[in-house]
Structure formats: structure tokens, C-alpha cells
Write a protein that binds this DNA or RNA. Structure first.
Lengths: 182, 182
DNA sequence: TGTACATCAGTGAACGCGCGTTCACTGATGTAC
DNA sequence: TGTACATCAGTGAACGCGCGTTCACTGATGTAC
């Protein structure tokens, strides 16, 4: 059942989309190749026509997520939008760094490199919107904000006490947006 | 080959220690029951005399790590000690929240509860040392610091660029220790 | 204190299961004429 | 433009492997006398 080139491109995109959602939701290990393919509307046997291995899919997925990050927004808006209960609940289409960064330590060199790109990208976009008088100051503001945002979101998800989860988000949001520049 | 009660207690401790180190190093999924038992000096068959399942071991390990957290230290010392290249490299005996917090989302209710205890414990110890005029202010300082520290350490580990890894730690350290009270 | 026996912690082979991966086959697509 | 054939994307059964878990057995510990 040969398919057209357009169909093949579409299927590859569907595989990456499915992997992006499933991996963020449940982690690399817990999601099987067969599940990704099923979510993409194919059977598992077709997988190896698209990727050499599960490891290769993981690397390609992280790279894809890093490349598809949302464009910049104003500083406070960006931080406030990130640190919300909605984002906390939305693993599947939320920040790939918070969902997959911790797991990337144990993945291939390619996946780690892609994750590094994702982090640099997030810092770069934050720096473009950060308060501060010079480049260096805005960069420092962005790096610290990136760490605090990702940490708050991860802890907020890890914890089973809704009050503490909210406190982590709101306290970090206030610290970052009323610190100095704002 | 029945063993003495003292030996049994010792073995249980050895299992929890081995699990604590291995899980922090490689994650819950990647470490097998047999590996934990081998590291504890036993064979895998003995495992079920100590724990009902791998899931139960995970919950017990997180609870044990939460209970064995180091006592408080002065604010700047605590933050500076946490945000070091040494801690970044030392997965196995480093902060269990940074190593296992992200994975705890997908674990049992018991494991998540234990992780919540660990986070509350870290925040509580930080709050005791935090700058601030009243309880509420110190608590806010501690919550924000906890999120920033854990986030910086996790990202610092996720990234494959040593310069960026160091920058995440040092920038966060400076932000937290020169912010206001320090 | 010494002996006889019951208890039970530990061993290691075996189980069932699900995973990543392979492969013979199918049949629509795309190409040569 | 129409036909004949080669290509190759996709299917689904099958593979090997490693995992969590079970279990019959072993033999040192602890207890009863």
C-alpha cells in the first residue's frame, strides 16, 4: 500500500505530534512505539520506515518541540501565562522543558543537544522581553527566571497538595514580576 | 537460611539505601528490582519478603529520603551549597526532589504524598533560615528559593553545554543571595 | 546449658507479559513507454 | 493520454529479550523442653 509523498510527509508530522504529546504526558519510557504509531493513525510496523529506532524518535521529537516554541511575548505576560494552574494541568501541550528536561539527562547525546537548544531558546526569548539596562543584565534576568519558572512548574506538578501547588506558582510569579524592573 | 532480626533490619536499610542511590541516579523505571537487591547484597527473590512490589519500594524510598534530609543551615550557605557543580554531578546522593520530583507525578499516591512531604520539608528548612521580617515573608522567600534552586539544578543537569550549566547555577545563586535580605 | 524441632529469610529457576524490532507480504503510487 | 510494471509505504505476525513476580526448596536462627 504505497502512499503519496504528501501523505508520507503528513504521516511523519502526525508521528512527531503524537510523540510530542504522549512523551510530555507520560515520559519517554512509559510510551511505546506502538502507542505513538496508533495515535498517529498507523500500525507499529511502519515506524521503522520513518525513524531508525525509538531513541531516534525521541531525539527528533525533542528537536521538533524546541523548534516549534511559541514566539516572544511581553515579560510579565509570558511569566504569568507560564505559571498558571492551566499550564500545570496541561502536560501534553505544555512546556517541553518542564515535562522532558529532567528525563533528557538519560537520553542520547542528540536528545540532550536538542534539549539544550530548547533551553537556550527559552532563555533567549525571555531575555528579549526582560527588564534591565544592558544585554548582560537582561540575560541574567532571563536565566534566573527560566530556572525559577521551570522549577516552580515541575514542583507544582510533583506535589499532591493543591494549596502548595498554587503557592509555588503564585509566589514565583510575584517574585519574578515585582522584583525590580517589572 | 534464616537470618537474625538485626540482619533483617540491616538488609532492609541496605535495600532502601541502594534504591535511594540507584533511583536518584537513573530514575525509577530504569532501575530493576534485581539491581537494587544486588546492590544491597541479596538476590532478587528475597525482595518480596521486604516489600510487596516495586511500586511499594518506590514509595518507601521516597519517604525514606524525605525523612533523612539534612538539617537546616544558614540561608546563603544552604543556597550556595545546593547550587554547585559538585551537586550537579552527584545525582546518587544529591537532592531527591531534583532527581525524583519530576518522575513522581506518574507514581503511586503514596510516592506522591512522600514527595510532597519532601518539598514541604525543604521549604520549611529554608524558611527557618530565610531573611524577612515576618513568618509570611520568610515563607514566600523560601518557596520561591526552593522553586528556583530545584529548577536551576534540573536545567543545569539537562543541558549539555557546561557554560550554560554553570550560568544557570551561578545566576540563580546570585539572584537568591543578593536579592534583598541575604 | 544442651538438644530437637519449627520457623522463616534467602536462593535461584521459572512464569507470563510487554516491549522494541524484524520481515514476508500487500497493493496503491509513480514511472517508462 | 493510456497501459504495464517497478517501487516502496504500510500491515500484522513473529522474534528475542528483560522485566516484575512467584515458588519449591534450603538451612541458619530462635524456641520449647
Amino acid at each position: 500500500m504505497r502512499r503519496s509523498k504528501a501523505q508520507v510527509d503528513e504521516n511523519r508530522r502526525a508521528i512527531l505530534d503524537a510523540a510530542g504529546r504522549l512523551y510530555r504526558e507520560r515520559g519517554f519510557d512509559a510510551v511505546t512505539v506502538a502507542e505513538v504509531m496508533k495515535a498517529a493513525g498507523l500500525t507499529h510496523g511502519a515506524f521503522y520506515g520513518y525513524f531508525a529506532s525509538k531513541e531516534a524518535l525521541i531525539a527528533a521529537t525533542v528537536a521538533d518541540l524546541a523548534a516549534r516554541a511559541r514566539p516572544a511575548a511581553p515579560w510579565e505576560e509570558r511569566i504569568a501565562g507560564y505559571l498558571t494552574a492551566r499550564h500545570r494541568a496541561d502536560l501534553a501541550s505544555g512546556c517541553p522543558i518542564a515535562a522532558l528536561g529532567p528525563e533528557s539527562i538519560r537520553q542520547s547525546a542528540e536528545a540532550r543537544a536538542a534539549m539544550t537548544e530548547a533551553v537556550e531558546g527559552m532563555i533567549g526569548r525571555l531575555a528579549a522581553a526582560a527588564p534591565g539596562d544592558d544585554e548582560q543584565e537582561r540575560r541574567a534576568e532571563a536565566v534566573a527566571a527560566c530556572a525559577a519558572m521551570v522549577g516552580a512548574l515541575i514542583l507544582s506538578r510533583a506535589v499532591d497538595d493543591p494549596g502548595l501547588a498554587d503557592e509555588l506558582l503564585s509566589t514565583t510569579r510575584e517574585k519574578l514580576t515585582t522584583g525590580r524592573g517589572g
